[in-house]
Design a protein around this nucleic acid. Sequence first.
DNA 1: GTCCCTATACTCGGATAGCAAGTGTCCGAGTATAGGCGG
DNA 2: CCGCCTATACTCGGACACTTGCTATCCGAGTATAGGGAC
Lengths: 162, 162
Amino acid sequence: MRMSDGVEWAAHCCVLLAVVPPEHALPAARLAEYHGVPAAYLAKHMQALARAGIVETTKGPRGGYRLARPAEEITMLDVVEAIDGTEPAFRCSEIRRRGPAALPAREYRAKCAIHAAMNRADDAWRLELRNTTIADLLRQVHRSASPKGLVKAANWLQEVTA
Amino acid sequence: MRMSDGVEWAAHCCVLLAVVPPEHALPAARLAEYHGVPAAYLAKHMQALARAGIVETTKGPRGGYRLARPAEEITMLDVVEAIDGTEPAFRCSEIRRRGPAALPAREYRAKCAIHAAMNRADDAWRLELRNTTIADLLRQVHRSASPKGLVKAANWLQEVTA
DNA sequence: GTCCCTATACTCGGATAGCAAGTGTCCGAGTATAGGCGG
DNA sequence: CCGCCTATACTCGGACACTTGCTATCCGAGTATAGGGAC
C-alpha cells in the first residue's frame, strides 16, 4: 500500500504558499525549483489541488498558484484526498457472499465484520489527518527549523516575488 | 492508495481457520473454494501468512493450513502487515533538503513536520487494527450472521474435514 | 503626455508515453498416507 | 495376522507472464503585461 509521492510534494507546496504574501502567486515552475522536483510532474499535482479548491490559479505573467483559503482551514486530509483520491484503501469485495456457503443477498443485512474493522481504522487515520492544518505545519517549521534555513527561504521568496 | 485484495482474502481465511478444529487443517484449494477466489493466487497469500508466523502448514495428504496461535492473539494488523508489508504508506523523501534553500544535513535535526503528521495518522490506523483480533471478528460473525449461513458453513466444514 | 491597441511571453490544463508494483498462473520439492509384500 | 517397504497422490513453496495504475513529459488554450503608435 503505497501513497503517491505527489502528496508529499503538494503538502510542502501548500506550506510554502502559506508564507507567500496573498497578493503574490507562485507558478508551478518556481514551486518545483524550490523543492527540487520535476516541474512538469508537480504541475499535474497542483492541478489536482486546484480542482479540489485548495489553491486557486491565475494565468498569464505574474500568475501562478495561491491558497484559496486561510492555511488554518486547509487540513492535511484535504491535501491527501485531493492528490490520492477519497476512496478508502480497503475495498470490500463481499467474498462472504460467494462459494458453497453463499446465501441470497437479502440474508446479508449486517455489514461485513472485516469491512467494518477496516473502516474504523480508516476513520481513525482520516481523523488524525483532519486534525492537522497547513497552519499547524507552518508553525512547527517556524519553531523547529534552523534560522539559517528560514533566512535562505525568505531571501529566495523575495527574489522570485520581486 | 490501494490496499491489496489479498488482505481481505487472508482475513476471511483466518476467520474460517479459527472455527476449524485444531486437529484438522484446510488446504489452500479448500479455502479458495469456500471463498470463491482463484486457488493459485490465494495460495500465494497464504504463503505470506505462513512466513509471518500467523498460520502453520502441514504438507502431504490431510495437510494444509491451521492457525499458529489462538485467534485471540492474532490481530488485524498482523494480517495486514503480513500481506501488505510493514512499511508505512507515506514515504518522506526529504525534499525540504533540496532546492535553493537547502542546507547541510546537520542543520536538519528536527523531523520533517509533514512526515511527523503522516506518521501520527499511520500510528492511529495501526492502533485501531491492533485492537481487533480474529476472535473479535469471529464473535461478530457469530452474532450477526444469518443462522442459515452458519449452518451451511458448518455443513461444508464437516464435509471437507470428514 | 495620455490613451488605446497589438504583439508577446508567460501561465495553467489536459492529453500522451514509460515503468514499477500488484495480479494471476504455473510447475517442482517434499511428505503423510495407503496399499502391497514378506515374514 | 502383523510389520515393513514402496509407490502414490496430495500438499506447500517459489519462479514466471500479464495488467493496472502511478510516474513522468509534452504541447495547446487562455490571459495579464509591456511596448509602440496614434491622438
